[in-house]
Design a protein around this nucleic acid. Structure first.
Lengths: 337, 337
DNA sequence: CTGAAAGCGCTTACAG
DNA sequence: CTGAAAGCGCTTACAG
């Protein structure tokens, strides 16, 4: 690959002038500029980004640290991030942690060595105090989907409202024995959805029944088991709210396996709106999360943080979810009364 | 962040010695080494990877260029690549092209400026001669899933065999009017699956009927439409082979919409085994592609190319697919005869 | 408007 | 085994 020196020789100017002609930040005479541009073209000159980055103390790269690309909520978010990154001339480095703290630290260190300009995390658990440390050092960090505290910028969803509205919809549709198949309470997002569920029940005067609730499920297999567990407790829900689409699909599988019909015997509500959720049979009613949009916002925010000289007050953006009514929820026993 | 100079001062040695003590490539006295290591620890020294990369002419980064992370075949492959990258100390930069050649070129240029050490592509169409150009320059390139020619290393699937065996299985199960809902013939992988389909029919003495075949479908919506198109031609297939899971799911949707049963009225076979495919109703029989494994192999191959001084003969690795028998295929009319 | 020089933070051939 | 020096390829303050 050609260097700036070779371009300078070919154009008959100094390397400094080539640099200036290319950057556009300093005035250069039109003739000089033209000469330089011609030489650049002839040599197919590509400035060495490492040299540039070393000099300028930044790499035009952002790091993205998530639990696992294979978790289907992430691909749309990643796409949002890479789209924005492209717009501003950033490149994005992808890291999977499997929620392991050591791996997370390993990547943070590795990325800082590489002088990444900022970091987007979607893997914050309570233990992630090292992220707070980064923030304290003035390093640009944005949290995505998962929340930590008020000191760190984040783009998250309104999980309370999502849980509340999903449950409220089931109630409006006439369901009264509404089961909840939820994820781990260690994640704030599941705590919030749970709170929303309880709030909606309380508002409607429906007593809360612990027997209808399973926490800590992960993936469709757990959702499937959770349904049997609820039945095993002697409960006969007329609707089930799975707080992720895979959980809801597992629930649906169990229901069908028992020869029951969705939604006639048991209605099923999901949460996420993964790309495949529309294709289930019956199509899944779900609370859609704007993952792509969240990725876009997080990246936009990060770019702002990178470009701001002094400390900016952290912003927690809370995005709205959208109820998507499909056929897995019908009309329950109380609807026509 | 501390620099090598600061470490040197603190340890009372020269920067060169610090560099040597850390690299381990050159002998350093044990006492010196210990002093250096202590200083490194105290200052929490992280070597600047840009400086290192500039000096060494490499970045310990690999570029991954794919059409779209949201296409569900990629997340597992990406995971395979990042896992291997981590193992060898590489970082991976993710780029989405939407199959657009200009975008692809843009990224290649941008990544080369950043001195990425190699590139994994999964976006090669006939037009991608610029990839051949890279290869010619001796730049490490590995193709993933999609194939270009014999000169470029690649990790692909045996698509002919996959198409052949899927079709053969349907025939063995007693189906005779087997429709094919295929992707664009511009991609070799779809041409190969089509060839496999024809070969299996021919072998069984079943005449090829063009009316049962639709090419160029993309995503489940097209699969859905394709089913109606086939019926519109007056054909009544007893089985449909969709050459990707989304296509098969779209087909299934159309079949159910017409009040027909899968597999009793029409059997459905997919191709991919996406993470969600097991959850369809009925569970989808499909030809599983080892995407994660392909990512692993491609990254391993790339690392080998990066580390080899002279040109190596290109290797095209062809991975086997696996038939996963689930309930969307039953036993057709000819089975009991 | 332009050039020569210094420097970003490393590594490594050279000399001792 | 260790240090001083040169150099990777840029950018930018300094001087003119």
């Amino acid at each position: 690959m050609a260097t700036i020196k070779e371009v300078a020789e070919k154009a008959g100017v100094s390397p400094s002038t080539v640099s200036r002609a290319l950057s556009g930040k300093v005035a250069v005479s039109p003739e000089t500029k033209e000469k330089v541009l011609r030489a650049v073209k002839e040599l197919n000159y590509q400035p060495n980004a490492l040299a540039k980055g070393l000099k300028e103390g930044r790499s035009k790269t952002i790091g993205l640290i998530i639990p696992n690309v294979r978790n289907l909520v992430f691909p749309p978010a990643i796409r949002g991030i890479t789209d924005v990154a492209k717009k501003y001339g950033y490149t994005v480095v992808l890291c999977n942690t499997d929620e392991d703290l050591e791996t997370e630290k390993f990547y943070v260190e590795s990325l800082r060595r590489r002088l990444v300009d900022g970091l987007i995390f979607s893997t914050a658990t309570q233990a992630s105090t090292h992220i707070l440390e980064l923030k304290k050092q003035g390093f640009p960090v944005v949290l995505l989907i998962r929340h930590l505290n008020e000191e760190i910028d984040a783009v998250i969803m309104d999980n309370f409202k999502g849980g509340y509205e999903a449950t409220k919809f089931l109630i409006q549709r006439g369901y009264r024995r509404i089961a909840l198949v939820n994820g781990t309470l260690e994640l704030e997002l599941y705590r919030q959805r749970f709170e929303g569920y309880r709030a909606a029940l309380a508002e409607a005067g429906i007593p809360y029944d612990e027997g209808l609730v399973v926490h800590g499920t992960k993936g469709w297999e757990d959702g499937y088991k959770a349904m049997y567990e609820i039945w095993g407790r002697g409960r006969k829900p007329d609707a089930v709210f799975g707080t992720s689409d895979p959980k809801a699909l597992g629930v649906m599988k169990a229901i069908k396996e028992q020869g029951l019909k969705v939604p006639d015997d048991v209605a099923v509500m999901g949460y996420d709106n993964l790309d495949m959720s529309e294709l289930t049979d019956p199509p899944l009613t779900t609370m859609a999360q704007p993952f792509y949009e969240a990725g876009v916002r997080a990246a936009e925010r990060l770019v702002k943080l990178i470009n701001s000289k002094r400390k900016v007050r952290p912003v927690i953006e809370k995005l709205e979810t959208t109820l998507l009514i499909r056929q897995s929820v019908g009309f329950g026993p109380a609807y026509y009364k």
